[in-house]
Each structure stands twice: as structure tokens, then as C-alpha cells.
Amino acid sequence: MEIIELSIKDIRKNPYQPRQTFDEEKLEDLKNSILIHGVMQPVTVRKSVKGYTLVAGERRLRASKRAGLLKIPAIITEMSDREMMELAIIENLQREDLSALEEAESYKELMTKAKLTQDELSQRLGKSRSYIANMLRLLNLPLMVKRAMNEQKLSSAHGRTLLSLKEPLLMEQVAREAIDKNMSVRALEAYVKTFDKKRTIKKTSKKLKFLQGYENQLKEHYGTNVEIKKVKNKGMIQLEFTSEEEFKRILRMLQKK
């Protein structure tokens, strides 16, 4: 496959790139490496109506721009929109710093956009169906627990253990205890097994059923996960976003009169 030098200004970013944020320190390291050794691996692009569209190599392209390069080695490939989207998501899955929730979101996105079943996805990625199913289950965790995982206060194994509690408010309550007491996964598993759900949930189940309909309406309207919480006479609505772009989209909807 032929490698050619392309003008960086003629390459536009991949519209299907699932990754919106990049580690600034690692980008700087890559830029310094490029200044010394050059771009060691070419990016992959697709010919477009005007110039080229990046297929793979977002970090290399960004770092090359920072290094002041005008051209970058590239491989031109013929690829459909669907193939571009799949490759971008699969490349994202190969990141070393990918968190469990980011991995799960990528699986969900690939299944949705490529219209794949869990079986088809497992075959395509070479991972077991049970592994993918367990990762996808993490997306059902409450926002508070997801935040704790992203902040590395809880692991994905902690998250899977909390899912057995079923009730979102109960998961949050136990998650806080696990963080406060610095519980290991094994300790949390033992605690969850002996947990008196009825005593702790009290009347929250009825409340959750009452609010479920409103949550579903808001989820459909905003196109993202929504949680409604009510404690005594106060309430809170939480809208989830996974990127700056999605945050701006939701903000525009909220500001629309």
C-alpha cells in the first residue's frame, strides 16, 4: 500500500470519531517525539469531495499540527461511511488509557450505528459475548457511581457488584460506603450479599416508579440518560453527557425557548 505525503490543511477530522478529549500531556510527548523522529506511522485517509477525510490517526494528526508540520505521511483508502465509523470506534477501543465506561460506550455505539447484535459484535472484536454483556451492564449504573469510576474511586468490578442491588438509590448509598471505607471488591461482594435491601430502600421503590415515566420522557427528548431524584421536599434532575460536543448539544436544547 502506497504511502504519500499529504498537506495537513487538506485533511479534515473524522466525523465519526467517538473520542472527543485527548490527554494533553501525552499529545505533547507525541509532538516532541515527532519533532525528533518524524511521524513513524502514517495516518489513514479517504478521498472526499474537497481534500481528504481522516479515517485513523487522530492523535498523530493533532500532534503533527502542534509540531508545526505542513505535511504528514498518509495512506489513501476506499471506505464507506459505515466502515469509517466502525474503524474509528475500533481504533478508540485499542487505546491503552481507555476506561471501562468508555469501552462500554464504544460497544454500545458500535452496536447501534452498525446495527450489530452482541453475538455479532463479539465475533467481530474477538471477545466473548459474556464479556461484552458485562461491560454493557455498567452503563446501567447511576451517574454518581459512574463518576466515582471515572475518578478511579471505584473499579469496574465494584460497579458490576453494585448492579446486583438493582435499585439506583441503593447502589449510590452502598457505593458511598464502599468509597468511605475503601472496600476491596471482595469486601463489597460480601457486604452486598448480606445487605438488607428492604430495610434500606424503605419507600424509595414507590417513588422511583412514580418518576420513571418522567425520566423516560426526558431521556427520549434529550437523547441521553436522565435521572430524577427526590429527597423530602427537594428534587434534582441529572442529564448525562460523555463529551464536550454532547454537553453543548444538551445546553442548546435547554436554552431553547
Rank of each mutant, 00 (worst) to 15 (best):
L170F: 14
L170K: 14
L138N: 10
V145D: 08
M183A: 13
D196F: 08
L139T: 13
K197A: 12
A178T: 15
D180W: 06
D180C: 01
L143S: 04
G159F: 02
T194V: 00
A178C: 14
R147C: 03
A187E: 15
L138P: 06
S184P: 04
P168A: 06
H158M: 05
Y191A: 15
E189M: 11
L139C: 11
Q152K: 12
L136V: 06
M135F: 12
A148C: 01
M149K: 11
L169Q: 05
I179D: 14
A190G: 08
E177D: 03
D196T: 02
K198Y: 12
D196C: 10
D180H: 12
A187G: 12
L138T: 02
L136E: 07
Y131Q: 06
L154Q: 04
Y191G: 07
L138Y: 01
K181V: 10
S164Y: 00
R124W: 02
A175P: 04
A187P: 07
E151I: 03
L143T: 04
F195N: 08
A187Y: 04
N182H: 12
V174C: 07
V185Y: 03
M144R: 14
M144P: 02
R186Y: 05
D196K: 09
R137S: 12
T161C: 11
D180A: 11
S156V: 07
K127M: 12
M171P: 09
M183N: 09
E151Y: 01
K146H: 07
L165A: 11
R137M: 14
F195G: 02
G126M: 04
L138F: 01
E172T: 08
V192L: 09
G159A: 10
L162C: 11
S184F: 11
E189H: 10
R124P: 06
L136G: 07
K181M: 06
L139I: 15
K197P: 01
S155D: 01
K127S: 03
V174L: 08
L163G: 01
E167C: 00
D196H: 13
Y191D: 10
L165T: 15
N140T: 06
Q152N: 02
N150T: 04
S155C: 10
K193D: 13
K198Q: 14
F195S: 05
A133R: 13
R147M: 05
K146R: 10
K197D: 05
N140S: 10
A148D: 05
K197F: 11
Y131E: 13
M149F: 00
P142I: 07
R137I: 05
M171L: 13
K193A: 14
D196G: 07
M183L: 15
E172R: 05
N150L: 01
